Structure formats: structure tokens, C-alpha cells
Amino acid sequence: MSQQRTPTIVQCPTCQADVVWGEVSPYRPFCSKRCQLIDLGEWAAEEKAIPGAPDMSDSDGWSEDNA
């Protein structure tokens, strides 16, 4: 006797709609291509960032152009 598993449901990070985590949702974790592109645009515009130590590579005023 086979048991059916309940599908995993996640929320779209952009609009909070429920999304089935599986092949029926090709844009997962997003509900649609539109929400996927909105999220990509936010990253590209640097509205989103992964927390971490600041990049100090340019803080000393030295660049390869000055070498």
C-alpha cells in the first residue's frame, strides 16, 4: 500500500503566496516569473544584501590604476 506524501508548501519571498515545492512550480521558491524578476531586480539594485563584514579591499585608497 503506497502512502501519499503531503507536498511541501513554501511562501513566495516576493508576494507571500503559497507555492508547492515540486516540479509543478518551475519558479520555486517564487510563485511566478514576475516575482522571480522582481527579486532579481532588488538584488541588482543592491536593495538586498547578505549580512557580513564590510569589504575593505578599496578602503585604503590604493588601486591598480595608481600602481
Rank of each mutant, 00 (worst) to 15 (best):
M1P: 12
M1Y: 10
S2K: 15
Q3N: 05
Q4D: 03
R5K: 15
T6L: 12
P7L: 11
P7R: 10
T8V: 15
T8H: 14
Q11N: 14
T14N: 10
C15W: 10
Q16T: 05
A17M: 13
D18K: 15
D18F: 13
V20T: 13
W21T: 03
W21E: 10
V24A: 14
S25A: 13
P26N: 05
Y27A: 06
R28H: 06
P29N: 01
F30C: 00
R34Y: 08
R34S: 08
C35Q: 03
C35G: 04
Q36R: 15
L37C: 05
I38F: 12
I38Q: 09
D39G: 01
L40C: 07
G41W: 04
E42G: 06
W43N: 03
W43K: 02
W43P: 06
W43E: 05
W43A: 03
A44T: 11
A44P: 08
A45W: 08
E46V: 06
E46A: 09
E47M: 05
E47L: 08
E47Y: 04
K48F: 15
I50V: 13
I50H: 05
P51H: 01
G52H: 03
A53S: 13
D55S: 04
D55V: 03
D55H: 03
M56H: 07
S57K: 09
S57M: 07
D58E: 14
S59P: 07
S59Q: 10
D60F: 02
G61A: 03
W62K: 09
S63P: 11
A67M: 02
